[in-house]
Amino acid sequence: MPFPLTINGLQYVVDVEPETPLLWAIRDTLDLTGTKYGCGIGQCGACTVHVNGQAVRSCSIPVSAAVGTTITTIEGLSVDGTHPVQLAWKEFDAPQCGYCQSGMIMSAVALLQRTSAPTDDEIDSGVTNACRCGTYYRVRQAIHRAAALMSTPPAGSGGRNDDV
């Protein structure tokens, strides 16, 4: 049956069973494949998206429960990779295989939205995504860096990413 979803500011209707996890509507029906399948049981966090600004494991909520919410995926964070968290991630060359990093970044953004300058302990409790490559050392530094970037007003508008 059809479910209207608001994702990255756009309106979609997905025609799936109501218990279909939001993850699969996002990945397979809408082809927003930046959000990853890792465990399917809400453990690893590879599927993390924002629902009404909160970091949520999208494998663990049915699409029917997402109707009427505002959803953001990694593709909606910025159009060109210039969200401060993405800039910080690039500065520290944080990803290795990269598979968990969309979810990790979405968790970090949600943390920074509620805690503008998180302590190490707040990062520990706020970002609980699993990374098998073990990128945590750089992820931690990148979160601190992103917090600093977000606390200073941008030098110009619509900055270009020259790092690509």
Partner: peptide, 27 residues
Amino acid sequence: RKNLDVPLKVTGQAVYAIDVKVPGTLH
């Protein structure tokens, strides 16, 4: 040297096999 594929990995654009969808694919 920063890794060449990192910019794609922070935007969700890096394509893993699990992201591939050939037109008409069955699952």
